Simulated scan of single mutants.
Amino acid sequence: MPDTYEKLLEDTIEIDAPTDKVWSLVTDVPRMAKWSPQVVRSTVKGGVVREGATFTNLNKQGFKRWPTGGKVVRMNAPSATTPGEFAFRIRENHTVWSFHLEPTATGGTRLTERRETPDGISKLSLMLTKVVLGGQDGFTKELQDGIRQTLERIKAEAEGV
């Protein structure tokens, strides 16, 4: 089975809210189910989100459900003039998901969500994606669409819409 997958998925949105407000949303791992169409539930071990913290997710696709484990690998809060980043690595497939926050000249935030594969994707995850989740192309499209939906929902929350 060839390891054919997109090495980088990302999208960006402009939010009319300061970076500290957006930061408080993207680092609230238990609330991610409110924004991400794939996440059913997230639970942080010990309840505190910090670099090194671990968490479990319950994910979904239609009626299918599966657990994953994550670990916060970068947590650099933004300021009014410097960007910030929140990133976590998924144990089962080795992907790194991140949110990059940049302050804009108007006092808002440019938010980018990324899924990167610096160490590839595990063979088990590639096989399960092929057999259970509809194949790499379809699942990649779902992930890309999910990134857009997540960003739009975070924007609506941050702007109070």
Score class of each variant (00 low, 15 high):
Ala33Trp: 14
Gly84Cys: 03
Thr56Met: 00
Thr4Lys: 11
Thr4Glu: 08
Ala87Phe: 15
Thr150Lys: 05
Ala156Trp: 02
Trp35Lys: 11
Leu151Ala: 05
Gly160Asp: 12
Leu9Trp: 07
Glu142Trp: 07
Glu14Cys: 13
Ser24Ile: 04
Ile121Val: 12
Thr68Asn: 01
Leu8Val: 14
Pro67Arg: 05
Asp119Phe: 11
Thr140Ala: 15
Pro18Asn: 03
Leu8Met: 08
Gly134Cys: 12
Lys64Glu: 08
Arg50Gln: 15
Ile147Gln: 14
Gln61Gly: 08
Asn76Val: 01
Thr4Tyr: 02
Gln61Arg: 02
Arg74Tyr: 08
Lys64Val: 09
Ala158Glu: 11
Val49Ile: 10
Gln149Glu: 09
Glu51Tyr: 04
Glu157Thr: 13
Asp28Ser: 10
Val44Gly: 14
Asp11Ile: 11
Ser24Asn: 10
Met1Ser: 10
Glu102Ile: 01
Asp145Gln: 13
Ile154Asp: 00
Thr81Pro: 02
Thr4Phe: 11
Val40Asn: 04
Arg91Met: 04
Leu25His: 07
Thr56Asp: 10
Leu101Ile: 02
Arg31Tyr: 07
Lys60Asp: 09
Ser24Pro: 10
Thr27Tyr: 00
Val39Trp: 06
Leu9Phe: 12
Thr109Tyr: 05
Pro83Asn: 01
Thr150Pro: 02
Leu101Tyr: 03
Thr140Ser: 10
His94Lys: 01
Asp137Ser: 14
Leu111Asn: 06
Ala158Pro: 02
Gly69Asp: 09
Asp28Met: 00
Pro83Trp: 00
Val26Lys: 01
Ala105Cys: 08
Gly84Arg: 01
Arg91Thr: 13
Lys130Gln: 05
Tyr5Thr: 04
Gly46Cys: 14
Thr117Pro: 13
Glu14Asp: 13
Met75Gly: 03
Ser42Phe: 10
Asp28Asn: 07
Phe55Arg: 02
Met127Gly: 03
Glu6Ile: 09
Gly62Trp: 01
Pro67Lys: 09
Lys21Trp: 11
Arg65Thr: 09
Val49His: 04
Thr106Val: 09
Glu10Pro: 05
Thr19Cys: 11
Trp35Cys: 10
Asn76Ala: 08
Leu9Val: 05
Arg148Gln: 15
Leu133Tyr: 05
Gly84Leu: 02
Arg31Gln: 13
Thr54Arg: 12
Leu9Pro: 09
Arg91Lys: 14
Thr117Trp: 08
Thr129Trp: 02
Leu9Ser: 15
Arg89Glu: 14
Met127His: 12
Thr54Ala: 11
